[in-house]
Design a protein around this nucleic acid. Structure first.
Lengths: 196, 196
DNA sequence: TCTTGAATTGAACGCTCGTTCAATGGAATG
DNA sequence: CATTCCATTGAACGAGCGTTCAATTCAAGA
C-alpha cells in the first residue's frame, strides 16, 4: 500500500504540527522521535518529510508561530489608552492567553536550547519584542508619575515570570476559576508597580 | 590498559555529578549521552556504572539533593521572627540561593518530566514543602493583619515564580548587581502582599 | 474512464543510544 | 616485593534514532 484513502495535505500538515506540539510539551523535544509523531498522526515516519524539512525546523516553526500569534493577539487587543488600563489589559490578556495554550507556552520556555543558534536568535528577538510591550507600559506609567518602579526592565522580567508561571500550576478543575486567578494576579501586579 | 593512574572513587564520583549537572543544564537530560558525561569526566562510558545505577537515577539524585539542600539551607537561615521580616528573609534567601546555583535551578524546573512517576512524586513533595515555607509566612502575616492577600496559595505561586525567574535573565556582568536585584525584588514582593 | 500527479509506504542507510561485563592494570596493604 | 582489591577499559549487545527514496496507490481533472 502507498497512498492512503482520504489522505490530504491540508489535513496531514496541521495534524503533524498538533501532534508534535503535544508530544514535545509532554516529553520534550529530544525525547520525542519522528516515529512517535508519525504514529500519533497515523502515518509512517517517512511521510512527515513531505511536510517538514527536518525535526529542527518542525520545532522552530512551532515556537515561531506561537510567538508571532502571541504578539499579533496582544496588538489586536491593546488599545492606546492610559498606562494603568493598558497594564491591566496586558495582565489579563497574558494570563488568559497562556492558560489557553499550555503546550505552546511550555515548549516556548523549555525548548529554546534545542534550537540552532540562528533559530534561537530569531526567537529571542520575538520574545524581546513581546517583553518590550510590557516594558513600554511600565516606562510610560512611570514617566506619567502613575507607577513607582525602581527599574522598568527588572519589573518587566519579574512580572512576566509571575504571570507566565500561572500556566505551570493552574488546573481547570481546581479550587479557583480563571476569573479568580485573573483578579488575584491583577491585584498583585497593580501593587507591584506601586498603585494602591 | 584498565585502571588509570591517580584514579579514585572519591574523585570520580563527584566529578560525574558535576559533569552531568552542567551538561543536563546546558543541553537537557534527553539530549545528553552517557558518553558525553564520561568524556567530560575523562573516563569511558562504562566506568560511570560503578557510581550510578542508571541515567535516570543520576538525574533524580541531582534534583533530590538540590531540593534537600535548598530546604536545609532555608531552615538554617530562617529564624522565628515576625512575618514581615521572615518574608524579607525568604525573598532575599531565595534570590541569592538561586543566583548561586543556576544549573541546579534550571534542571529542577526543566527535567521534572524526565523523571519516572515515583521519582517525580518524591520531588514534587520536596518542592511543595519548600513552597509551604513561603505559604505559611503569608498565612501568618495575613492572620496577623500585616498582609492583605486574597489567596495565600496563589500568592505563593506568583511570588515564587517571580523570584525564581531572576535566574533566567540575570547576568553577573549586567547593568545591575545582585544587591540591586535583591532590593528591587524585595520591594515588589513587599508591595504584592500589601505592605506599603 | 483514463491519465496524471500527489500522498504515502516500507525498507534501508549509517549512527548513536544506554547498559553489561570479562579482562586488566594501578593502588593499597603488609 | 607479593598479593589483594579497586577503578577502569573497550568491546559488544540490541534497540532506536533521523532521514532518504524508489515503489505504489489513491484522488482528481479531462
Amino acid at each position: 500500500m502507498a497512498r492512503k484513502t482520504g489522505s490530504h495535505a491540508e489535513i496531514t500538515g496541521p495534524k503533524i504540527r498538533e501532534a508534535a506540539l503535544h508530544l514535545f510539551a509532554q516529553h520534550g523535544y529530544a525525547a520525542v522521535s519522528m516515529r512517535q509523531i508519525a504514529a500519533e498522526v497515523g502515518v509512517q515516519a517517512g511521510a512527515l518529510y513531505a511536510y517538514i524539512d527536518d525535526k529542527q525546523a518542525l520545532l522552530f516553526h512551532l515556537l515561531e508561530s506561537h510567538m508571532e500569534h502571541l504578539l499579533e493577539s496582544w496588538r489586536a487587543e491593546s488599545a492606546t489608552s492610559e498606562p494603568l488600563a493598558r497594564l491591566e489589559s496586558f495582565t489579563r490578556f497574558h494570563i488568559r492567553y497562556h492558560l489557553d495554550r499550555p503546550d505552546e507556552v511550555f515548549i516556548s520556555y523549555m525548548e529554546l536550547r534545542n534550537l540552532s543558534p540562528e533559530n534561537f536568535a530569531e526567537l529571542e528577538a520575538l520574545r524581546r519584542r513581546y517583553e518590550g510591550e510590557l516594558e513600554r507600559i511600565l516606562q510610560e506609567g512611570s514617566a506619567a508619575g502613575l507607577f513607582t518602579i525602581a527599574d522598568a526592565r527588572v519589573a518587566t522580567m519579574g512580572l512576566i515570570a509571575m504571570l507566565t508561571g500561572v500556566s505551570t500550576w493552574f488546573r481547570e478543575t481546581g479550587r479557583l476559576g480563571r476569573a479568580d486567578i485573573e483578579e488575584i494576579y491583577w491585584e498583585m501586579t497593580r501593587r507591584a508597580v506601586g498603585v494602591a
